[in-house]
Measured scan of single mutants.
Amino acid sequence: GMDVRRLKVNELREELQRRGLDTRGLKAELAERLQAALSGPSSG
């Protein structure tokens, strides 16, 4: 899988935006949010 901790802030935001998620917050928050999205149930 993707290691969200290795991504830069702008990369985290890009991935979040692609999934329609909130791109605001600290890098740690963005990484946590993206990780949750990646490990969560895949819809679609």
Rank of each mutant, 00 (worst) to 15 (best):
Met2Gln: 08
Met2Thr: 08
Met2Val: 12
Asp3Phe: 08
Asp3Tyr: 08
Asp3Glu: 08
Asp3Lys: 08
Asp3Pro: 06
Val4Ile: 12
Val4Leu: 08
Val4Cys: 10
Val4Arg: 04
Val4Gly: 04
Arg5Asp: 09
Arg5Trp: 15
Arg5Lys: 13
Arg5Met: 13
Arg6Pro: 05
Arg6Ala: 13
Leu7Met: 15
Leu7His: 03
Leu7Cys: 00
Lys8Ile: 03
Lys8Tyr: 05
Lys8Met: 07
Lys8Val: 04
Lys8Phe: 05
Lys8Cys: 15
Lys8Gly: 15
Val9Trp: 09
Val9Ser: 05
Val9Lys: 09
Val9Asp: 05
Val9Tyr: 15
Asn10Ile: 09
Asn10Phe: 10
Asn10Cys: 09
Glu11Gly: 04
Leu12Trp: 01
Leu12Tyr: 01
Leu12His: 00
Leu12Gly: 00
Arg13Val: 08
Arg13Asp: 00
Arg13Trp: 04
Glu14Leu: 14
Glu15Met: 08
Glu15Gln: 09
Glu15Gly: 02
Leu16Ala: 02
Leu16Lys: 00
Leu16Asn: 01
Leu16Ile: 01
Gln17Leu: 13
Gln17Ile: 06
Gln17Asn: 10
Arg18Gly: 03
Arg18Val: 05
Arg18Leu: 08
Arg18Ile: 06
Arg19Thr: 01
Arg19Asp: 01
Gly20Met: 03
Gly20Glu: 03
Gly20Arg: 04
Gly20Asn: 06
Gly20Cys: 07
Leu21Asp: 01
Leu21Pro: 00
Leu21Ser: 02
Leu21Phe: 04
Leu21Glu: 03
Asp22Thr: 05
Asp22Leu: 05
Asp22Asn: 09
Asp22Met: 04
Asp22Phe: 02
Asp22Gln: 05
Asp22His: 05
Asp22Ala: 06
Thr23Val: 07
Thr23Asp: 07
Thr23Trp: 09
Arg24Ile: 07
Arg24Glu: 07
Arg24Pro: 02
Arg24Trp: 08
Gly25Thr: 01
Gly25Met: 01
Gly25Arg: 02
Leu26Asn: 15
Leu26His: 14
Leu26Glu: 12
Leu26Met: 09
Leu26Asp: 15
Lys27Phe: 10
Lys27Thr: 05
Lys27Ala: 08
Lys27Leu: 09
Lys27His: 13
Ala28Phe: 09
Ala28Arg: 12
Ala28Asn: 09
Ala28Glu: 10
Ala28Asp: 09
Glu29Ser: 05
Glu29Thr: 08
Glu29His: 06
Leu30Arg: 00
Leu30Pro: 00
Leu30Glu: 01
Ala31Phe: 09
Ala31Met: 15
Ala31Pro: 00
Glu32Ser: 10
Glu32Asn: 11
Glu32Ile: 10
Glu32Pro: 02
Arg33Ile: 02
Arg33Asn: 02
Arg33Met: 02
Arg33Gln: 01
Arg33Phe: 02
Arg33Ala: 02
Arg33Asp: 01
Leu34Glu: 00
Leu34Ser: 00
Gln35Tyr: 12
Gln35Gly: 06
Gln35Ser: 10
Ala36Thr: 08
Ala36Asp: 08
Ala36Gln: 11
Ala36Pro: 00
Ala36Ile: 09
Ala36Phe: 07
Ala36Leu: 10
Ala37Gln: 04
Ala37Trp: 11
Ala37Tyr: 11
Ala37Ser: 06
Ala37Ile: 06
Leu38Lys: 03
Leu38Tyr: 05
Ser39Val: 10
Ser39Pro: 05
Ser39Gln: 13
Gly40Asp: 11
Gly40Lys: 12
Gly40Val: 11
Gly40Ala: 14
Pro41Gln: 13
Pro41Lys: 10
Pro41Asn: 13
Pro41His: 13
Pro41Trp: 12
Ser42His: 12
Ser43His: 13
Ser43Gln: 13
Gly44Phe: 13
Gly44Ile: 12
